[in-house]
Write a protein that binds this DNA or RNA. Structure first.
Lengths: 212, 212
DNA sequence: CGTAACTGGATACATCATATCCGCTTCATG
DNA sequence: CATGAAGCGGATATGATGTATCCAGTTACG
């Protein structure tokens, strides 16, 4: 929670610590994985990651049995941070504002991370830290939606089950071809959020669309 | 246009007509392709199509040099039908209603056709009938949006450039895991269309979401 | 030093879609 | 019906791509 990037815990506890150079390489691999997966998605190869880290493939496979393992290490942390955002949102007074803010924040993070988006799309394997973090986020969202409803902020018929599909829609915008990272998704999120409100506020749309 | 499925034109003109059994097989292949691509997407193999048609692979490759060619034959027709829907929509008086109706119709068609959706997502190769039909649809949509705007039906800032992203979003809903075909997309299309209106009409949302 | 730990990356392996080839079958025509 | 052209089937060659291993050589560290 308070831990910063770059000072990861040195491998698992109970294991003999890695040789210093090996531990350094481990960090390099994780960092490279972050960058590569963010830019090229989960279909990137461990060979790609190794090359990006300036290491040999063998070194990577020594530390992580397969791609799944590396991705799990990387994205569990990522998802935990998002879960923390969701939890923070629950503290805010106005639930709808909190929900909207959370969505903007979490999706903004996803906007720059193709791997993360793919992970959310295809669902995490049960029993991993990924799945746990995912459930956490979901439950925070549910609470947020429930509270927004009791506060009368939601359009009739809107439920917590709407959040995931909305995220999927925004994800589709992010996956659109074109120069990245684009901020176009904010425009459509705004439209959708307006559509979720009990009384739609016609705040001007963000992004391109200046009419003549 | 007036032609029905099942009475396709017998191959290209200027070519010697196929032997009767060969022509029949051609039809079988196209029909199988329609079904297979619709159900499993464009990543389906020509081998798959052949098997589904009850024919050998060689027969398929004899008639269509590669998957691209078969897909083109199949989906050009599909897209032309959608283009016709768009053209018909332009005749309606109320442009917004026409636009909404067209989107519902076209997307409804896509809902049952994974291959078609993939094709729209990844863009058609320039110079093909696909690309031509696509441009046609786009231009009809642009006209529809323009007219809706002059009729004062559109929220400030909404433009013709919004249509494609919206289609992409709805596509994302359709691609969501779960039993198919689902009608969930209608719900989100409704939300988005409301968000496009000058004065949002709070018609009850379709689909699941009955609040307690 | 001596040795256990670690590294590099060529390469074996596996998977998978694509496309071809050619002996056999079927049609169509005189 | 005979016969040759047209068509068929599907085993298989080809090629691309990702995954994972192996081991000779290098490096850290007591």
């Amino acid at each position: 929670m308070g831990r910063q990037r770059g000072e990861e815990e040195p491998a698992a506890a109970g294991t003999r610590p890695l040789r210093r150079d090996a531990e350094l390489n481990r960090q390099r691999i994780i960092q490279a994985g972050r960058e590569v997966f963010a830019a090229r998605g989960l279909q990137a190869t461990l060979n790609d990651v190794a090359h990006h880290a300036g290491l040999g493939v063998g070194t990577v496979y020594r530390k992580f049995p397969d791609k799944q393992a590396l991705a799990e290490a990387i994205f569990t942390e990522e998802l935990d941070e998002i879960a923390a955002m969701a939890q923070k949102a629950r503290a805010e007074g106005d639930a709808f504002t909190a929900l909207a803010g959370f969505l903007e924040g979490a999706l903004g993070r996803a906007a720059h991370n193709r791997g993360l988006r793919e992970l959310m799309r295809h669902g995490a394997v049960e029993g991993t830290g990924l799945a746990r973090a995912r459930r956490e986020i979901t439950s925070h969202c549910e609470a947020l939606v429930a509270r927004a409803r009791t506060q009368g902020a939601l359009r009739d018929g809107v439920t917590e089950a709407d959040i995931a599909p909305i995220a999927a829609m925004i994800d589709a915008i992010m996956a659109l071809p074109g120069e990245h990272p684009s901020e176009l998704w904010r425009r459509y999120l705004a439209i959708i959020l307006d559509g979720l409100r009990a009384q739609p506020r016609q705040t001007p749309l963000p992004g391109p669309g200046s009419v003549g």
